[in-house]
C-alpha cells in the first residue's frame, strides 16, 4: 500500500517537472519570434547589413567642400519580376552635404501592369546611416503598365558626419515584385 502511494506521488512529481520544462520550450519559441523585431532594431542601430532608413529626410545646408565621396550604384531585378532596371550613371562623386539627383530607368517587359518594390542597401554597412535620401522611388511601390518605361529620380546627400576613412560607398537596389 505504501509502495503504491509512493509510486503515485513520484509520477505526479515527474509530471510536474515535465510541465515546468514545457515552459522553457514555450519561452524558447517566444524567443524565436522575439528575435525578429530584435534583429531589425539591432540592424538599424548598428547599420549592420547595410539597412538604411527607408524614409525621407529633410535637406540640410552644411556642405563639406574639402572632401569627395564616390557613390556607386548597382541594380538587381529579383526572380519573378519581368523588368529591366538600371542606373543612368554608374557612379558619381559628391561633396558630403551636397544634394544630388541621379536617375534610374525601369521598364516593364511583361504584357500586363506589374507593381514593383525597390529595396535599397548600402555597403560598407557602417556608411549606411550617413546616406540620406530626400526623395526616392523606393519609398513606395511603382506600378508600370505593359511595356511602360519610367525614369525614376533619387535625391540624396551624404551626411558630412560620415567618417573620414569612408571614401567610397555603394548603393544597391533590388527590385522585387511588390507584395500584393
Amino acid at each position: 500500500m505504501e509502495k503504491i502511494s509512493a509510486i503515485a506521488s513520484l509520477s505526479q512529481l515527474n509530471r510536474q517537472l515535465g510541465y515546468k520544462l514545457l515552459v522553457i520550450v514555450a519561452m524558447a519559441l517566444a524567443f524565436a519570434y522575439g528575435l525578429v523585431p530584435l534583429y531589425d532594431v539591432l540592424c538599424r542601430v548598428t547599420g549592420l547589413n547595410g539597412k538604411t532608413e527607408n524614409v525621407a529626410v529633410s535637406a540640410q545646408s552644411r556642405v563639406d567642400a574639402t572632401r569627395w565621396v564616390e557613390v556607386s550604384f548597382t541594380s538587381n531585378v529579383m526572380p519573378g519580376l519581368a523588368w529591366s532596371f538600371h542606373p543612368v550613371q554608374s557612379s558619381i562623386r559628391v561633396h558630403p552635404g551636397k544634394i544630388e539627383t541621379v536617375t534610374f530607368i525601369a521598364r516593364n517587359m511583361a504584357n500586363e501592369t506589374v507593381a514593383g518594390q525597390a529595396v535599397p542597401s548600402v555597403s560598407p554597412g557602417k556608411a549606411s546611416e550617413y546616406f540620406k535620401k530626400i526623395e526616392c522611388f523606393c519609398f513606395q511601390r511603382q506600378d508600370l503598365k505593359a511595356g511602360e518605361s519610367r525614369e525614376m529620380p533619387l535625391r540624396f546627400y551624404v551626411s558630412p558626419d560620415i567618417p573620414d576613412d569612408v571614401k567610397a560607398l555603394t548603393l544597391s537596389y533590388a527590385f522585387y515584385s511588390a507584395i500584393k
Binding site: L21, I24, V25, A26, A28, L29, F31, A32, Y33, L35, V36
Partner: peptide, 14 residues
C-alpha cells in the same frame, strides 16, 4: 534541445 529546437521550429514555421 529544449532550448534550441523551438527556435528551429519557429524559423521553419516563419
Amino acid at each position: 534541445l529544449i532550448a534550441t529546437i523551438p527556435v528551429l521550429a519557429g524559423a521553419v514555421t516563419m
